[in-house]
Design a protein around this nucleic acid. Structure first.
Lengths: 195, 195
DNA sequence: CCTACCATGTAAGACGTTACATGATTGG
DNA sequence: CCAATCATGTAACGTCTTACATGGTAGG
């Protein structure tokens, strides 16, 4: 259900086409909530059917069209209701924990590669999120610029602070995962696993 | 796909019925990977069809039966292949980050409640995982006892160490989430949100 | 006899992934 | 004219959740 609200968050900044949403998704909210193209278009249609957004058919060249979507008052209301409602948490489902808990079944080499891979994965994520955090702090991302342009200057700091908070959650997460996997590697050393 | 390997991990310890798996799931792997009853029975049937496990029909009383499943050599091989293969990581999908990043849209009271709820949620998880970590360290959980009984004593420490490692991942995660949300509350204070 | 527990599912729908599929326009 | 980019989807499949549905047995 969060895809809907991720899309509404972007559309509330200004009207966009499915294609634009798809691109900006990857470059902004996509860091927080990934969604493939094939999910965005159908979801937009569903949201339109539910009256949350309205698409305006626009001509492009001679034959092509594009649908420019904008948020309706009902959509705005729905978004705010979601923001004001408590979040429902999904039960944990952590493949890495599951694997770690039974790691004695893996070959020593595979065990070490698992932990190294874990570090590599989260380091990659961390790099991206830290870079995005930098860009947000510098108010340098296109979406953020567009968004700040629509609100009074005295609110800018607040908006940036919350955006930072969102990314910091992921940065913290990645750092924790890396530190844990490094402790795991130390454990393998202690257990005499070949390095 | 991890459900399959969570079930195999349990069945490798000893043969069990769907019902036993369901109960022990909640009390052991369920902490690492939640699955509802309605998913376990069909998955067991699929695994049997794939030749990974075999079910033995047992009589219970006069009319009732139960299926006791045990792992086949093919199932064992499949499990070890999974343990030795690199883990594929899913893209991030963090509703809490998403919400935090747009928290200026929430009412001040709702913003604070969101962060307090986040702390409450992860504190609840943390309590459970820490308790389980204690039980694992004391080698006091039924599944672990059953498991240790099947392997040579010199391997016990190793098995316990990995089990601890798995739970520590979740403990670390919960602590990080709590610390983050507390920083978020401090931010709200700084922004002059009513408390 | 009755209650708690043992035991096993189905059905509908939401959500997500991967792969496939097509065509127009703009700028060089 | 060709490549990059704009633009919009469908199809098939798998996963997960929620709710519904049924009956037997063991122990007091």
């Amino acid at each position: 259900m969060s895809l809907r609200y991720a899309l509404l968050a972007l559309l509330r900044v200004g009207p966009k086409s499915g294609y634009e949403l798809q691109k900006q998704f990857d470059a902004s909210v996509g860091h927080l909530w990934h969604a493939p193209d094939s999910q965005i278009y159908p979801e937009l249609r569903k949201m339109e059917a539910a009256g949350l957004i309205e698409g305006e058919e626009q001509v492009r060249g001679t034959r092509a069209t594009r649908r420019l979507y904008h948020v309706t008052p009902a959509g705005d209301e729905d978004y705010l209701a979601w923001m004001n409602a408590p979040l429902t948490y999904a039960r944990v489902r952590e493949p890495a924990s599951l694997k770690a808990a039974y790691l004695e079944a893996a070959e020593p080499k595979a065990a070490r590669e698992f932990l190294r891979g874990h570090i590599a994965h989260w380091q990659g994520e961390l790099d991206q999120w830290e870079a995005e955090l930098e860009r947000v702090s510098a108010r340098a991302t296109p979406m953020l610029k567009e968004r700040l342009a629509t609100i009074p200057p005295e609110d800018h700091d607040r908006v940036v602070a919350f955006k930072r908070l969102g990314y910091e959650n992921l940065v913290d997460r990645a750092r924790t995962e890396i530190a844990w996997a490094e402790r795991g590697l130390t454990l393998l050393d202690e257990l005499g696993y070949p390095g």
